[in-house]
């Protein structure tokens, strides 16, 4: 009896290898900058939207009309404006890649360390700082924070603080600076990450 192979998605495989190639050709710092810039440019193209109340914002997550939900999936509100995302939006890419190559490229560790270093963009968008667990975080986290720049609640601007993230292997990363700035207890973030891959806080500015 012949064995059936599983057909993988070439977009997933080539995107992951493209990052690896970028790291080799231009170094981890420049590759990180390219991915972050790309994420910010994507966010810049979305339309501005206002939700009259925080509940309307939450409803928009439920019905998937919220622009952030449309790129990352449904996050759940854990109370006190802390959100948990159950599935990493790059999970399928990672899974597909792992099925072919049994492990992400080795140079991803260098990239992730670079992403977690303080930098002007990570400071501006309150991302990284320990909450990066893979290069995909350098796409996802800044993009989400930049999307937030296009969203208002009751006419007030919002800011997103990346609090933590969890890798596929279960290792948790915490952004201590943003956890402190958001005034969220670290054990709350830790608990959210028990059942979620990503944890962030939304601050409504007034």
């Amino acid at each position: 009896m012949s064995e059936e192979g599983k057909i993988q998605d070439i977009a997933h495989i080539s995107f992951i290898d493209m990052i690896k190639t970028m790291i080799t050709l231009v170094g981890a710092a420049s590759a990180k900058g390219i991915l972050m810039r790309n994420a910010l440019m994507t966010a810049d193209r979305i339309s501005e939207i206002d939700y009259p109340t925080f509940n309307d914002y939450l409803k928009a997550i439920e019905n998937s009309t919220n622009p952030i939900t449309r790129i990352e999936g449904k996050a759940s509100h854990k109370g006190e404006s802390v959100f948990g995302l159950e599935k990493c939006p790059f999970a399928d890419s990672i899974k597909n890649y792992n099925e072919v190559f049994q492990g992400l490229p080795a140079s991803y560790a260098e990239f992730t360390a670079e992403y977690n270093k303080p930098g002007q963009i990570s400071q501006k968008y309150r991302v990284g700082g320990g909450a990066g667990v893979s290069p995909f975080c350098s796409v996802h986290q800044p993009m989400r924070s930049a999307f937030a720049d296009k969203i208002t609640i009751g006419g007030e601007k919002i800011e997103i603080y990346q609090l933590g993230c969890k890798s596929g292997s279960g290792k948790k990363g915490f952004a201590d600076e943003w956890i402190r700035a958001a005034n969220v207890p670290k054990d709350v973030v830790d608990k959210v990450l028990d059942n979620h891959m990503c944890c962030y806080y939304i601050k409504v500015l007034d």
Partner: peptide, 13 residues
């Protein structure tokens, strides 16, 4: 800056 970063990075590589 964005473009130079690629050039600088590739020179280092």
């Amino acid at each position: 800056g964005a473009i130079a970063s690629g050039g600088f990075g590739s020179s280092e590589s």
